[in-house]
Design a binder for these strands. Sequence first.
DNA 1: TATGAGCCGATTTTCGAAAAAAATCAAACC
DNA 2: GGTTTGATTTTTTTCGAAAATCGGCTCATA
Lengths: 243, 243
Amino acid sequence: MRDKAKPAGETRAADVLHRMRADVISCTLKPGAKLRFEALREMYGVSFSTLREALSRLVAEGLVIAEDQRGFIVAPVSMEDLIDLTYVRVLVERECLALAIEHGDDGWEADIIGAFHRMDRLQTRLGSNYYLSEEWGKLHGDFHFSLVAASGSPNLLEIRQKLFERAHRYRRMSSQFRTKWRAKDVEHKMIMDSVIGRDTAKAQELIERHIRETTENVIKHAGHLFVQVDDERQGRSADVAAE
Amino acid sequence: MRDKAKPAGETRAADVLHRMRADVISCTLKPGAKLRFEALREMYGVSFSTLREALSRLVAEGLVIAEDQRGFIVAPVSMEDLIDLTYVRVLVERECLALAIEHGDDGWEADIIGAFHRMDRLQTRLGSNYYLSEEWGKLHGDFHFSLVAASGSPNLLEIRQKLFERAHRYRRMSSQFRTKWRAKDVEHKMIMDSVIGRDTAKAQELIERHIRETTENVIKHAGHLFVQVDDERQGRSADVAAE
DNA sequence: TATGAGCCGATTTTCGAAAAAAATCAAACC
DNA sequence: GGTTTGATTTTTTTCGAAAATCGGCTCATA
């Protein structure tokens, strides 16, 4: 992420918002890190007010926390949050799946197959370290979204998307520490088949396991990074600052 | 809401955020209304940037919509949104209740009883038109929150809260047009009793009916206000502007 | 030595003017 | 007559300087 912005069509603040969200999710901006305006201004090439606007939206999304009169920090990660997040995601994803399977039409099925193949193809092309790639993360997100896209509930889908992004940050944390990746592609294939086969119970069962196993892997590989919240304002973070 | 702010402890932008959120929810700022900066600046007595920050957060909360390069509007209301919102709320409230009943302790029960009595007392004091009062709306919200406060899932509670506020806007819309109020207090009492009696199934059943009946009443009394989304950008809104 | 009042540098928060973009209106053209 | 083009006005968006606030430090006092 360097100097000059490229505000193509959208507003400059919206551009910064997108970039900052991506940077938080990908842990380029590390959990718990203090966000100093001077540094951010240089990083994204915009002014105070514009930054502040982007930060404010991230606050409302739960990716950044505002401490009144004391600036902003990247939302910390913790074991408790990961576990809670997993719980809520299971609830929401199961419901989304049921709705989508109920309402989905042929076009929806086609989109799923398309999304799967895009993800699968890139995976083959990138080889064993595919999961570190930013682009694969995107396609993986698209695939999971395609499964539930036909749910017909905008409100639920919006909630799902925010939870997914929060979880992606945890996935990303663990992927740095892993040398071998479990057979996700097989899981994805099975989930897709059960969804298109309109087997609601099985699809829900599979997605739940998929989510839970991912969480377990995150805890196993990245659990040591999590902040143990002390008593006072102390528990800054286990890790680095913005720069 | 007039001129000078009272930024007690919190930041001025946070203060404006709270006031604007209340004004959107209470429909002082009408659904679909264009939000012009000059007018808002006068209304809340702060500068452009500060306003923009507050608006940005409301955007992420779904109460305000940003149209790139064309400013902000209050999120419109619609039949479809109300129905979808109701669906999601039922799902979330049921889950929250189950969790709270499972995890709640004595203190939790005491808080519920306290919240109920505060609401009930004000209701008696205000007489037949209690539901128009801003203060009752607050205590009503507090009561419903107390029921689920012990759920132990911060993420789910946060989602619940935002959904509740969105729904409050619809409730508020209909309350203007109603002369008689159904026996909510009896319903609240029954819900409270089943929750404290740890009867999960019954509590879920009652809260679901409570939500659905409220929605039906909103549709009956305020349905005519909803925007029928036309084709193009046209569907401005059925109603008035900020001032 | 412990306590705390007051000052100083660093950082955040607010402001309103300036730049950019969209909307409005009018004249010219087909 | 109706549509396009271009200038003017209104509204939004961005900027960086100025004000407010915080956190740490010193130093006086008990």
